[in-house]
Nucleic acid binder design. Sequence first.
RNA 1: GCGCCUCUAGCUCAAUGGCAGAGCAACGGACUCUUAAUCCGCAGGUUCUGGGUUCGAAUCCCAGGGGGCGCACCA
Length: 520
Amino acid sequence: MPAAGGRAGALFSGGHGWSGRLDRSPLDGHRVPRAVADPRGAAHHLRAEPEVIEPPYRLEPDATAAGLAERYAELEAGGETGATVTVAGRMMLRREMGKLAFATLRDSSGSIQLFAGAKWTADFDGFVKLSLGDWIAATGEVVRTRTGELSVKVSEWVQLAEARRSFGDKFRGISDVDTRYRQRYADLWANEDSRRVLLLRSRIISWTRRWLEDQGFVEVETPIFHPMPGGAAARPFVTHHNSLDVDLYLRIAPELYLKRLVVGGFERVYEIARVFRNEGLSPRHNPEFTMLELYQAYADYTDMMVLVEQMVAGMAAEFLGTTEVTYGGRPLSLGAPWRRATMTELIEEHSGLKVDLGTEAEELARVASGAGVRVEPGWGPGKVLLEIFEKTTEAALWGPVHVMDYPKEVSPLARDHRSRPGYVERFESIVAGRELCNAFSELIDPDEQRARFEEQARAKASGDEEAMARDDDYVRALEYGLPPTGGIGIGMDRLVMLLTDSDAIRDVIAFPTLRPETLS
RNA sequence: GCGCCUCUAGCUCAAUGGCAGAGCAACGGACUCUUAAUCCGCAGGUUCUGGGUUCGAAUCCCAGGGGGCGCACCA
């Protein structure tokens, strides 16, 4: 350590010899004038106090707020420990008491009080001039104040970064939703709930990976650029590759690539895939969202029902401690098994309408019109049936319920039902009134798949913008042989919404899609 | 894309046709155990923008912009 130039000793300048305390004061460094921008002023200018301490390049805090709270839980009020620690974080609150000052320091684990006094804190005057929101590191003894608050009794401290902008009302935070989503960095400090939700999202995703790996699933990555959109009915985003001079589509689903990998011998694969759909925004829709898709050889759609309900119930138990949860104030029981019912059963149960694919066309049209469904040209009975279900029944379901057996006409990638002609083995699970997942016994017959694609092509020709394109390579893959396979796609954003009791998808996405902001 | 609602100080919000305000933050000061500290003082505004009605507009009307919700579309 050079005698001059090292302004903060071993702790703040790095090196390997962390001794557990400061060798020198962090204030020993030279002071340098610095031009700063005043965020509330029009232009750059020198501040009234032109000398600032350059922050250290690295430091090694040796304690966290939560760690101290746990370790010293038994310390009595007024108690001292003799233990010196260094903590770092943002100063969120400060309470001055003449020659004493108390500050709330927040790090990623929680909050700890800093206890400063003119008699024992270096540059006490500087300490009380810190702005709310400044990043600081502080070293001192762990004590509990006479009023019972666990504290670091600050002997040395250093400012790590200044907060030139405020984090809003210190009690009420930032409530303007636009500001919260655009300036998430501020929202995360101002609103504890934002931090909680996004942290839980991260933990849910990593839990999902571990849970799937434990069952032998292999994580893979498939292309986001697709030469043709496939695997779902949705409008894609289009982009262009210059040197190939081809248009490429951002994927709307990883499905067809994942099943190619099953053909290739990956018997259990999954991908936590960001997918992109060129659709309107809503509290439940973001143009890019995260979908877990997995495929399991030798399984059918009933295996997928078991898988999703065990996964969701396991997550609830892990993160909420129970499968009896509340969403939007309504109780919801996520414990497996979930109810299974066919689409036609549910339509009858909720609307009294007795319809299925065998219903006479005129009767079906009459029922559709009575349900408020506007039948469009080109719709077959399967599409009409699906629309009737969505109009009359889906919103009324709270669930969880596996809605089984969809019309073949609206399910070009699912395998024919083993006993119900015209239907396929497909289910969607409705949880809290929303579709959480979509799963099939996968269609494995290449000839049938080719025929389904032809059917889609006809629909596209008659104006259905979301009809699937014919994917000849996918059919070729099936010709090599796809074993009987169960597959499922689970909307992870909606799952996180469910487990965090969030009513907006934007709350569970750190940087949701917004109209671009004009900053002048 | 259509409909409804909304936009006031850095933040959170008042003021409904009659002098634009409060709390917090900021700034100055007091205070040796605070917890959203307290107390005193001081400052802070293109009321989203433009137009109109009116003696007078944050308030009413029209147009535009941002945002929210609903519809449509979807998971």
